[in-house]
């Protein structure tokens, strides 16, 4: 109940930022349009744009809540209500942003790609991006620095040689792998590797967010309650 209330309020707050919603949609759209002449690149870029948009939204949502969460802790919330509620909201928002792009790709490239795999790549992009943005916000409280870190991450992801093994250390590698499976009709090993990487990256980022949030919002040991 408390978790859902946090998620609901986070979504309400985000949904009223109309400019932000438009920009969230514009980012993947621009990525798609710029590379529209190439099927593979346009879809890979829309996945990266989606990941970028959702992680940035999560970064700022985390920053907005940073001042308020301590008082919510005092109001009776546990740490996990707060970070999981926000994470849930970011996932819902990300899927809502992803849906029109899936429809666009299905309409525009439906006969050329594996649509199920495109959907999986989008879901994983959103799944990783939400905790990753919250994680950057937890590690770097200042939003400008956090935004720049996200920019470096996404730029690295875009520019790095796909054959380089270091690409597996980048957070959104799963989208590229599943994208390759969907676009180039490769074997299922790409799909399996992508799914595994995406799930692990999501879990790792979520666990790190949980640890950092729990530390930040912990009940300080100097404070004792006489009767509770």
């Amino acid at each position: 109940m408390r978790l859902l209330t946090v998620a609901e309020m986070a979504l309400r707050e985000l949904s009223r930022r109309r400019g932000v919603i438009l920009l969230l949609l514009a980012l993947p759209f621009v990525c798609y349009v710029v590379r529209h002449d190439q099927v593979g690149q346009s879809i890979r870029f829309v996945l990266l744009g989606l990941a970028w948009a959702v992680s940035t939204a999560a970064l700022f949502a985390g920053g907005t809540s940073r001042q308020i969460e301590p008082r919510l802790r005092l109001s009776g919330y546990r740490s996990h209500h707060l970070y999981l509620g926000r994470l849930f909201a970011m996932w819902v928002l990300g899927l809502a942003v992803a849906a029109p792009f899936f429809a666009l790709i299905a309409f525009d490239r439906g006969g050329q790609v594996r649509l199920g795999a495109v959907a999986a790549a989008m879901v994983l992009a959103v799944a990783v991006a939400a905790p990753f943005g919250l994680l950057i916000g937890a590690v770097v409280p200042r939003e400008l620095e956090g935004t720049l870190i996200l920019l470096v991450t996404i730029s690295l992801q875009m520019m790095i040689d796909p054959a380089d093994s270091i690409t597996r250390l980048t957070p959104f590698w799963s989208s590229r792998e599943i994208g390759t499976y969907a676009i180039d009709h490769t074997g299922t090993e790409y799909l399996v590797r992508g799914l595994t990487h995406g799930i692990l990256a999501t879990l790792l980022a979520t666990v790190l967010v949980a640890v950092l949030s729990t530390i930040r919002l912990r009940t300080r040991p100097h404070l004792r309650y006489a009767s509770r």
């Binding site: 005092l74 300080r220 404070l223």
Partner: peptide, 12 residues
């Protein structure tokens, strides 16, 4: 309890 002191305690 939002900030840790260097020493001392608070009972509520």
């Amino acid at each position: 309890g939002l900030l840790s002191p260097d020493s001392g305690e608070v009972l509520v």
